[in-house]
Computed example of a mutant assay.
Amino acid sequence: MTIDPTFPVIHWTDGAAEPSARWRSEAGVVPPRRVVLADDRMTADAAYRQASEGVALLWRGDYQNARQLLQAMARRIDRKPRKPPAAPLDAFNAHRQAQAQRARTLGMLLIPLDADYSIPLRRAPDVKEACREVYGDADARGGESSVVSLRELLGLIGAHEWRKKGVEIAALGARIHPYYGVFSPVRGEYVELVARARLPSRALAFDIGTGTGVLAAVLAKRGLARIVATDADARALACARENVGRLGLTEQIQISEADLFPPGRAPLVVCNPPWLPARPSSPVEHAIYDPDSRMLRGFLGGLSAHLEPGGEGWLILSDFAEHLGLRSREALLDMIDAAGLKVIGRDDIRPVHPKAADLSDPLYRARAAEVTSLWRLGVK
C-alpha cells in the first residue's frame, strides 16, 4: 500500500503492528486522534461511550452488524430529546449544535475501503460505483486503501441511489438526477414558481448558480431560445451538463463556469441562492447556507450590470431565515434598494414538504410559517 502524503492519514494499533491508511471525508471532518479496533463483540453502550469520548472505532466485523450498531448508537443519542428554546434563533442554534454533536459521535464508527473501493468485511455491499462518483477513479489515487466514516459512506450510497433514480419534476415531465453534494430539487415549490412566472422575453436568460440545471431546463422547456447557466462548483457543473444532455437541451442551454454572472447582459437573470445566511459546517452544506448572505449580496449587487434595459431579475428565496431571526424582511429590502433595484412584483407559494407539518421538529414553527417567493426585480 502506498499512502499519498498530501492527504490525511490515520494510524491504529493491531497487536504489535501499527497500520495506517488514508482518511477520507467529503464533509471535511478532521481525522480522529485515537482509533481502536472493534468487531461484532462490541455492545452498543460501549460503542456509544467511546464515540462520545472521541475514540473512533475501526470496524473489523460483519458489515450489516456495523449498520445495526450505528442505528443503536443513534437511538441512544435521540433517546432524550431536548425541549427547544422558545426564541426561534436560539432554537435554530441549539438544533445545529445538537446535529453537529450527533454527526461527530456517529461519525466515529469507521469502515475500511480497499484500493478499488471494495469493503473487506463480511456481507458488505458493492459500493465501488458510489465511491467512484464522489472520490473519482480509484486507479488515479495510486492504489491506496482508506478509511471512511460509515455514516458518511451511507450518505454516498444514498446519493448514488438518488442519482440513479432521479427526482421527478412535474414542470419538465422528466427526472433530474442530482450528484452528491449538489442541491437536489426535492422541494418542488421553487421550481413551480419559475414554471409559472410571466416571461419578460424568450430570447435569452442567465441562470446563476445552476446546481443540477433544473431551472435552466424549466426555462428551456418554456421556450427560451438560449440559457447560459453558471456555477462555480465543478461537481455541480458536471451534474448540470449531464442533466441537460439527458433532457436533450444542449442546443438551448450552455453550462459555464463562473463565480456568478457570465459576460454580457440578458433580459432575464434567475438566481436561487442558498436560503440561510449562516456558516456551513461542511462543504456539502454550501447549497443550504450562505455565510453573511455573500451569494445573495453578490447577485443583487451585480444584477443591474447584467440586465438588458427593461429586463427582470428573478430572485427565488424562502423567508425561512426571517422566521428563524437570521435575516429580517427590512434587511432584504434594504439590500435590494442599495443595489439600485426595485421590486416589480412577487409570487408566493407555501411549502408542501413533510417537515412543514412535523410537530416534533424543533424548527416546526418556522417551517410551518415559511413562504417561498419569486421576487421580480428591475433596475430603478
Rank of each mutant, 00 (worst) to 15 (best):
His323Tyr: 04
Arg329Lys: 09
Ala331Trp: 05
Phe299Glu: 10
Leu307Ile: 02
Leu333Asp: 14
Gly311Met: 03
Leu326Glu: 08
Gly311Cys: 02
Phe299Arg: 00
Asp334Met: 09
Gly302Phe: 01
His323Met: 03
Ser318Glu: 06
Arg327Leu: 15
Glu322Val: 15
Trp314Phe: 14
Leu303Asn: 08
Phe320Asn: 01
His323Cys: 01
Leu315Asn: 07
Phe320Arg: 03
Ala321Lys: 02
Ser328Val: 09
Ala331Ser: 15
Glu322Trp: 13
Arg329Ala: 12
Ser304Gln: 06
Leu333Val: 12
Ala321Arg: 06
Leu332Met: 11
Gly313Met: 08
Leu317Pro: 00
Ser304Gly: 08
Ile316Leu: 15
Leu307Gln: 03
Asp319Lys: 14
Leu326Asn: 05
Gly302Ile: 02
Asp337Ala: 14
Phe320Met: 10
Met335Lys: 09
Ala339Lys: 05
Ser318Gln: 08
Leu315Trp: 12
Ala338Glu: 15
Phe299Gly: 02
His306Asp: 05
Ile316Pro: 01
Ile316Gly: 04
Glu322Lys: 11
Ser328Tyr: 09
Gly325Glu: 03
Ser328Arg: 06
His323Arg: 13
Leu333Pro: 01
Ala331Val: 07
His306Tyr: 03
Gly301Cys: 04
Leu317Cys: 10
Leu303Pro: 06
Pro309Asp: 01
Leu300Asn: 08
Glu322Asp: 11
Leu317His: 08
Ala338Asn: 12
Leu333Phe: 15
Ser328Phe: 09
Met335Asp: 15
Gly340Lys: 11
Leu307Arg: 02
Gly301His: 11
Leu324Glu: 09
Ala305Gln: 08
Asp319Tyr: 13
Leu317Thr: 03
Ile336His: 13
Asp319His: 13
Gly325Lys: 07
Trp314Asp: 11
Gly325Met: 01
